[in-house]
Every structure is written in C-alpha cells, then in structure tokens.
Design a binder for these strands. Structure first.
Lengths: 353, 353
DNA sequence: CAATTTATGGCAACCGGTTGACAAGAACCT
DNA sequence: AGGTTCTTGTCAACCGGTTGCCATAAATTG
C-alpha cells in the first residue's frame, strides 16, 4: 500500500532535470474512468457523492483510484464549486506570542476536519490587514481575524462575502470568540486589594484595540467594587520595549500595583523597574494579561490574567466549520472564561522603609 | 479521516444560499474583454505577459480591469499552469518558539515576492510530517521543511516532485539552510574555559534531530581544542519540562558548565537547579542554543548560541524563489553564522566552599 | 403483465484562465 | 512595388473536476 508501483524508473532522461511537472504527476478521474470502464462523471460521483452510485461500481472505482494512487486536484475542484477546504487566519503580528496559541488552536481544529490553514500577518496595520483579508477571500472558504485592527464596517463587509469569525473583539452581526475579562480581572483586583494595595494603574494597549478598552473597563469596574483608585496610563507599543518605556510613568503615578494590557508590557515594565532597583513584588505588584509563552520565565514569575487563547483559536475554527456546514445559523458570540494565574510578581505591599 | 460529508445531501436544493458566491463576486477576463472590446485571451496576455500587447490596448484593458475591480481567480490560473504562488512550510511544533522566527522570516520574504505561505505542523512525528507534506505538495509551488523528522529518502522523494528546501538539517541533493554551529560553539566553550571550567556537559535533543548531533560534535571538538572534558547527557523532550527532568543527571555528572540542545531545555534546567538552591552562574554555568523569544526573560538572562532563525526562514524562502524562477540551479547548502550571546547565566566558576 | 416509479450511469456544458498556432496589418528592405 | 519580417490580436483547445438533464435498466405496484 505504501509502494503501489515502481516510481519513475525511466521517468526523465536527464538525471538532474527539473521537477517533472507532468512526468508521472497524478492520475485524473479520466484515468480512473478508463481503468474502471465507466464515465468520468461517475467517478466524480463515486468519489464525492456518497450513495449516488451502486455499491458495485463504487468498489470498482475505489479500487482503480487506489491502484493509480489518485488524489483530487484541489484547483480543478475549486474552480466550479468555489469550495477550497481552506481557512484563512490573519494575525496582527506573527512574532507576538499571544497569537501562537491561537494559531495552534485553529490549526489543530482545522486539520482535524480536513481543512488547511493559511496564515497571514497584518503587521499591526489596518490597511495591510484589509489588503491581506481581501486577497485571502478569493482562496479560502472562511476567514478568522485575530484581534483585527480594521473597522467594524470593513469586517462586516468581508463577512457578507464569506463566513468570518473574529477573535478578541466583538463586532455586531459577526460571530466572535472573546474572552470574558471580568472573572479574571476581578480575581486579580481582589487579590491586590487583599494585599494592601490602594492605587492601581492600568497600562493601556493600542488605541484601536477593542480588547484594551474592555480590559480598562474591567479594571475600573473591579477597582470601584473593591474601592481602589484606578488610573490609566498610555503605552507606545504593546511590546517589551513599550513596557520599559512606560516605567517612568508608572513610578510617577504613585500606584503600587499595575495591570498591563498584555504580558509583554508587564515583562518590560518589570525589567525596567528592577533595573532601577525597585523590588517586585515588595514595592510594586505587576499583573499581565494573556499568560503567554515565557510569562513564567521571569523572576519573579509573572502573575497574569490568562485568556484561553488556544481555545479561542479552536473555537473560532469550530464556529467557521459550523457556518460552512451550516446546521442552522448559530453565529452568536462565544465567550470563554479568563482566570487569574497567581505567580510571584504580585503580592503583599511592604511598608515603605 | 473524518470526511465532513453531510448525510443529508439535499442541502443543495435549499435556496438558503448564504454568502452569495456569485452575487457581485468578481469580474472575469471575459467581462473585461467585453468592456474593452477585445478578445479574452488578449486580456489574459495584457495582465500576465508584459509587452505582449500594444501599449494602447494594454491601457484599455487595465482601465477596464480597474473599473470592474478585477481580481484573478487563483484556481482558474492554477489549473492549467500548475503555478499557485504558494509556499508550504512544515514545522515540527507550532508552539515551539524556535520556529516563530523561521515562520516570520519565511512569511515576510514570501509575501514580499507575492507568494502566500501555508503553514502545517507535524507534531514532532515523522509520519504526520510526511502526510502533511504529501498533502501540501498538491497545492504549493514549493515546500520548506523546518527541522524535518522524516527520512532523508522521503525528503529526496518529495524534492523530486517540487522544489523543497530544508532548514536546520543537511540532506544530500536537496538545498538546505543550516546554521554553522562551529563559530558560536567555539566562542561559548572558549568563554567557559576562560572562566575556569574544566568539565562541560551537553544535554542532547531528540535522537532523530540532525541538529542535535551537529551540536554535540561541535561541543566535543571545541572542548578538545580547549582541553576540556565533555560529557553527553540525554533528555526526554526538548522542552522546559525536559530541562527540569535532566537536572538530576546534570548534577550527578559533576560538570560545572552545561550546554543544552536548545533554550527551552536550558530554561527548565536553570529553573530546577535554582529551585534546588544552586546558584547560576556561580556554581554552574548554563548555555542554551537558538536565542529564542523569552531567553532574556530569565534571571539571570540566558547565555545562548544564537542561530539567526529569521534569516534561515527568509533564506529558505529566497532559495525556493530562486529554484522556481530558476536563474540556473544554485541548489547548494546555505550556511548562516551562529554567535555567542553572552548574558548572565554563564560566567566565572566560584570556588566551592 | 402493463404501468409507473426509482436507481444508476452517460452526455455535455460549464468554472476562468492560459497558450500554441495563425492571420491580418504595419514596418522595413532592396 | 514586391517581398520579408515583426507586431498584435483572435481562435480554439486545453487544465480536471462538477452537475443538471436525460436514457436506460431495474424495481415496485396495480
């Protein structure tokens, strides 16, 4: 079964010749039809429409297909049908570890259902993103947008054309998968309050980030509930460097605990504060968001509000599959839970010496 | 395989035709031909064969195309030509940060040349890898294998069909991009020797890993040159956990400096040793490989032999492009330099006591 | 046993570009 | 002007499946 027939023995006269585009390449349904003694269309039906041909013919064709080591030509199939068995996934930044788990989750679920994942990056630019999305639309059955930066309207326009699922943002009329920040944030803020903190700073992410806005709202609400002061600080880029740069503002703010838009900011902030001699968590507590890869490499390891990103990715892929093989029209927003991961970077505030 | 076949095939007659495939969808070259008043084949030539049509007609057609907002149908183009403007990239593990930079490098270079990158994961399994590769071959113009686990022969078989480039491994007859370990390793070992170390342990990676073997050879050679003892230890998985588990063997070995197959092992090892009260680098020096994302999050930050992974990714993509638009047959092995990144986890050995 | 329904395979027209072959017209040469 | 290239656009045949429609054979029914 592994070696049905001798590979291209004579194949090409020239030994180091180019990749035989047509040499032995692949059998077509016409070849199968000839071998099985039926019409090509019958082969097509046998291979894609279960039950449309008699069991006898079915077997005949399947045997012939196996013998010829047949594989459908995806392009030939896609041309008349439009179906490609392919998903697109667009992320803002491939190097941002936040997306790793999303990618993996989506990839796993897609592959399990015999779909292929195509990846593109928007380099954090709304325009690049829209361009990439438009380009992809032609070749995929559905699109997943992770933390998209483009307008709601643009997203809806895309969704009008083919199924689209959004991760980490809520867009009216488009199915979304979003972490529900409240549980994780309230756990974090309660923990901070219990440890004697009174003033909390939130380091915001990119202005266009829907999620950053939600997190800030969540922090405000939780702080109000716990009767803590909450102050918002802006960051440049949501990266380690951005975290370093915001350290000055954090110290100036007088807050004794900081929540940052994401873990990268938290890590950069912690590095810069430690370099300046600030002891974490004795003098200041730091809490990140996402629980990315590497969040526990730091000393102290980072306390963070975990979003189940892998779940988001696979959930989005599953939603897309539902939409395509539509057993109805679910299309709602799926919420996944967040939780506090308590590590060493947050804790009791020591009285200033 | 779970074929997503709908049991009730009568879905076709249901007029609930979402996402109008034909609604406004896209204009064809026939539409353009009509508007411009020429033959479709002329449109095709104008759009793909520069200089084949007169400037006047060219403009006419381009205007019509712009007006109709034309976009080629990739499937229609791929069918007769076989060209898809797509690369496949197969990595062993999407969550392994080693591959992040490779992915990004390949993606960037591919996109810059108007190619799309399709990503697949082999989950560290040679069989899954081969399956994924076979599946991809049908839809891509070329394939990049990053740290492949499959046989040399399987790789060569794939390469006979379409251009294949291998990263992090050398396969006879197949173009490869490999970091040249020697410079980085000898820098590392010289640094260790200069700091008073006499016995060095190398924690190996997966047995099938070509790169692990090269690194061990490099360590042996460098140690011999510097007159240090070198001992090899085995690890389970090349992960943080694997690093933790090998800590016991490391201490038992009596080595005062350790090089690990990759950074993840180094990080896990360092965590476990520190948890046991061992001071890094005073009592033991640790050096990783790759300089992955997060390698500098640790305390002390990890000394590591950097492989320019982004360069590997983009180099592989560039090689593939060369192969495709073949200005000849370069097809050799490309070597990229490694270098020591000296951080805090390695240094002078303090006298015991 | 005739009449009617159903199961099954064949025919042919697509899907949307690409490309070799060819012919009409323009340009160039002696 | 006559003959010879060069340009440039057209024709038509693919690429490899899919699918509506029809014909025939088989099964069901009255």
């Amino acid at each position: 079964m592994t070696e049905p027939k001798t590979p291209d023995a004579d194949a090409t006269k020239a030994p180091a010749k180019k990749h035989a585009r047509d040499g032995k390449s692949s059998a077509t349904i016409y070849d199968i039809a000839k071998v099985a003694g039926v019409n090509p269309s019958t082969v097509s039906r046998a291979l894609s429409k279960p039950g449309r041909v008699s069991a006898k013919t079915q077997k005949l064709i399947e045997d012939a297909a196996a013998e010829l080591n047949y594989q459908v030509n995806p392009f030939a199939r896609a041309l008349p049908t439009g179906r490609t068995n392919t998903f697109g996934l667009i992320v803002a930044d491939i190097t941002n570890p936040t997306f790793f788990d999303i990618i993996r989750g989506a990839e796993t679920t897609a592959t399990a259902r015999d779909y292929t994942l195509v990846l593109a990056e928007s380099a954090e630019s709304a325009i690049t993103e829209l361009t990439a999305a438009r380009r992809m639309m032609a070749t995929v059955d559905g699109l997943i947008l992770a933390s998209p930066r483009m307008d709601d309207d643009d997203i809806r326009a895309l969704a009008r054309d083919k199924p689209v699922v959004v991760i980490n943002r809520e867009v009216d009329g488009v199915p979304c998968v979003v972490p529900d920040v409240n549980k994780g944030i309230s756990e974090a803020v309660r923990s901070l309050a219990a440890n004697g903190h009174h003033k909390v700073a939130f380091v915001a992410g990119p202005p266009q980030s829907w999620m950053s806005a939600r997190r800030w709202e969540g922090v405000q609400a939780a702080c109000e509930w716990s009767r803590l002061d909450a102050v918002r600080l802006e960051s440049g880029k949501p990266t380690v460097d951005g975290g370093r740069q915001v350290a000055r503002d954090v110290r100036a703010s007088g807050a004794t605990a900081v929540l940052t838009y994401n873990d990268l900011l938290a890590i950069g902030l912690m590095q810069e504060l430690q370099a300046a001699g600030v002891v974490v968590p004795d003098q200041i507590s730091i809490v990140g968001f996402d629980d990315i890869f590497g969040a526990d490499f730091t000393t102290p390891p980072l306390t963070t509000v975990r979003s189940p990103l892998g779940e988001c990715g696979s959930g989005a892929a599953a939603l897309l599959l539902d939409l395509l093989h539509g057993t109805g029209e679910p299309a709602g927003t799926v919420r996944v839970e967040t939780e506090l991961v308590l590590r060493g970077s947050s804790g009791r505030l020591l009285p200033a010496g």
